[in-house]
Nucleic acid binder design. Structure first.
Lengths: 270, 270
DNA sequence: ATAATAGTGTCTATCAGACATTATCTG
DNA sequence: CAGATAATGTCTGATAGACACTATTAT
């Protein structure tokens, strides 16, 4: 017994004759905030791509690209990351979908933002003709976002202020960036960074997210520094170890930690 | 000094000649999980719409609709909600963007999911020709999702199980629904419900989200019940009051609480 | 040897969970 | 007046924050 709609069509018949029509449809891209660390774990780094065409010609932007017709946004983010940087098996998490109609001056483009966390500061595919990519030092505090690379002479600075917005009849605070440097990021990519960092700091409390910036086996001094970098403040060693104790497993082996000078017990995530 | 790209065009020239081309673009919709409460606060209710056409003809679905070319997803959700139910000033929060290529059999449709929380179980625009809407009793526990309305003889049940997935080299648990009733929800709307409820329960810890299901002024016994409904478990009165103490302000007036039989102090959210 | 740091012990303030008690209202 | 419930008091165990101390090792 097949269901028929008001035109007397079965589902198969309906789908065969279905015409998507020409409602205006948006383009959909994914953009990734890719975070790594400096080799000595003395700071965070963010991966940016220099734009080779209008709009925002010569500005730096988050890596990203169009979602293909046969893939999910997650798969698109994974593919783009592989194509642009060569990394696989990276931690990838959806953050938010940005949809202001004028966020891209060319045409309507929505962007699904992702966080990507990598254990290594991987070598960047430089010199690739259209595509110039580079890692930048990245500082995110309560007051500012600072993105800079002295080698290529780029310095991008935004101040952050907290404003209160209404949603229904409840109010909530939100971070608003204001450009303070000559150079700026392309599109609304600062906002993507703000949302992504907010999400990271919230999720650290109840997920294993910082482990994805450590190697598979790691020492506790190194892991602690990664936590501190993501959180933006120091932790007490003893407290930190109590906190992660039930999530880690000792390998029974020692290794050199990046951050210290002595050998230290190696662990893996349970 | 205007920047020119590799074709010698300025940004204005580039935009004037820009052709979005015919890359296949997805349709983008918003879908809302609209939650209210029963009049006596004895349970949660969810608003569903009966589908009048293929696919999923006669199935119940979350309310939603296409994002127009001149509006953000948030604005689309607000508009759809107003059009379909008449409510304004509702709490609306983006949850997740669902993008499986085959999630809609007609054509590629991505959906940006929203949570909508309302203080009232508003009267539903029934009888509107194509659109039949109704409130359903809604139970969401660790083991199951139960959506039912005895008046119209609909009973939808999913079991929930926890599975572990990998993201990069870290693992995380996730809830997976399995259909247990004859009737099912349209599209991937169960998954939208699962993600939305997960988000609500997480956000209760650090936001004022439950206040958006109370009237502007409310009694503490009522507010506590709303918290309990959203969390899915009971709270101790004294502890609850300590928890919300610094977020509320007494009106200096008493009112009848819905849930109790006595008068109780009225409060507003700070 | 010594400076640095890996690793552990422990004190304290705070907070969530759990009951208990008192005050007040409604039928 | 009696039963219900609004409102508050307080005990306990767990936990985060803070600091101190010991053990080990690279130079």
């Amino acid at each position: 017994m097949e269901l028929k709609d008001k035109n007397g069509l079965t589902e198969a018949e309906f789908l065969a004759q279905y015409d998507p029509g020409d409602y205006p449809r948006p383009s959909v891209t994914v953009d990734m905030m890719v975070l790594g660390t400096k080799k000595d774990l003395s700071g965070l780094r963010i991966l940016l791509i220099k734009r080779g065409g209008h709009p925002y010609l010569n500005s730096w932007a988050l890596p990203g690209g169009f979602v293909h017709p046969d893939e999910t946004c997650y798969e698109a983010a994974k593919r783009e990351l592989r194509e642009e940087t060569g990394i696989k098996d990276v931690f990838l998490e959806q953050v938010y979908t940005f949809s202001k109609p004028d966020r891209d001056p060319r045409t309507r483009v929505m962007s699904v933002a992702y966080i990507a966390l990598t254990p290594f500061t991987l070598p960047v595919k430089g010199g690739d003709d259209a595509l110039e990519a580079a890692w930048f030092d990245f500082e995110f505090t309560d007051n500012k976002i600072h993105i800079y690379n002295e080698d290529i002479g780029v310095d991008i600075l935004y101040y952050l202020s907290t404003k209160r917005f209404k949603n229904g009849h409840i109010k909530y605070p939100n971070l608003v960036p204001t450009l303070k440097s000559k150079t700026k990021l392309a599109f609304d990519h600062v906002e993507i960074i703000v949302e992504s960092m907010k999400k990271i700091r919230k999720e650290i409390e109840y997920t294993d997210l910082p482990f994805s910036m450590a190697e598979v086996s790691f020492t506790l001094p190194d892991l602690q520094v990664i936590y501190e970098l993501l959180l933006g403040h120091k932790l007490y060693k003893a407290n930190f170890r109590i906190m992660v104790a039930d999530r880690i497993e000792p390998l029974g082996e020692k290794g050199k930690s990046i951050v210290g000078r002595r050998m230290s017990e190696l662990y893996i995530l349970k």
